[in-house]
Design a binder for these strands. Structure first.
Lengths: 143, 143
DNA sequence: ATTGAAATTGAGAATCAATCTCATCAATAA
DNA sequence: TTATTGATGAGATTGATTCTCAATTTCAAT
């Protein structure tokens, strides 16, 4: 079993939950994804490749993947919550193009530091953050 | 007519839209708000104070207020989109407490500058951005 | 003031993501 | 084996938001 799978299994077991075949299917699907996805895209890809699995099961599994850090909520977009793999993925923020929907990932260490400073100032214990900059990418600016 | 109202009216007229009594009612309600609100809170407050107005009218008016810069989308929270007045309000970002729901506003000039730098790097034309840090406030950390 | 084109409104229906229900299954421990 | 507890599937439900459409209002041009 790969490390990520073990992490997931351990999380489940230590919380009195079970590592079921269905959850393994969802796990595999997530691992095979690169880039962003939403719950329904995930569900559809499973349906196409591995046969049936309830939509509810996918929705129910997602919070567990988030809890283990295998998946992260990324942005809200087009009315849906989008996710991304976060194991093996560095934290990053997003530039979202309103023209073509393209998402550019970036990371700025200094911004992160300054955020920590802000939290300290307010005695705020941060768990995570989301920075999304909306606008137009190079290509879309021309149109 | 106050300046904000004029801004709103001019925006409407110049876009072939009309400054109707209903939109004025929504305008007044927004102006009288301080802090964050969501579409339904806005609708309810109008109902209580000024009698009837369709929920759809409120929802339909919001994009126009956003377009004029009178209102800004602030955060998505508890399944709803939250808004805030932005005329007379400086841009700021948010610390969101997952314990009590409190929202602390902050602004860090250096973070803003660094964001501009990132955009420049990717030739990205930014319209707006949203930075939300989730965690626990001082009070909730103790529990 | 009247007309007509275009925008607006209200009320409820429709959408759509996300969550919940509940009866049935499966796994583990006693 | 049985009891307990968690998990699943399928569909119903929720709740925010958007849409529909007939009726009304606005405004510019008669």
């Amino acid at each position: 079993m790969e490390k990520e799978e073990l992490v997931f299994k351990n999380y489940l077991v230590s919380h009195g939950l079970k590592y079921t075949p269905e959850r393994k299917i969802v796990f595999d699907a997530i691992i095979s994804f690169s880039g962003h996805f939403d719950a329904d895209t995930l569900y559809e890809s499973i349906r196409r490749n591995k046969g049936k699995l309830s939509r509810a099961t996918v929705y129910r599994a997602l919070p567990h993947f988030i809890a283990t850090g295998i998946v992260k909520e990324s942005l809200r977009f087009e009315g849906r919550t989008h996710y991304e793999k976060s194991l093996g993925t560095e934290h990053h923020d997003h530039l979202v193009c309103l023209g073509c929907g393209k998402i550019i990932e970036f990371k700025d260490e200094k911004i992160e530091e300054l955020q920590n400073k802000v939290c300290k100032k307010y005695s705020f214990k941060a768990l995570d953050h989301k920075l999304g900059i909306r606008g137009y990418c190079k290509t879309c600016q021309k149109k």
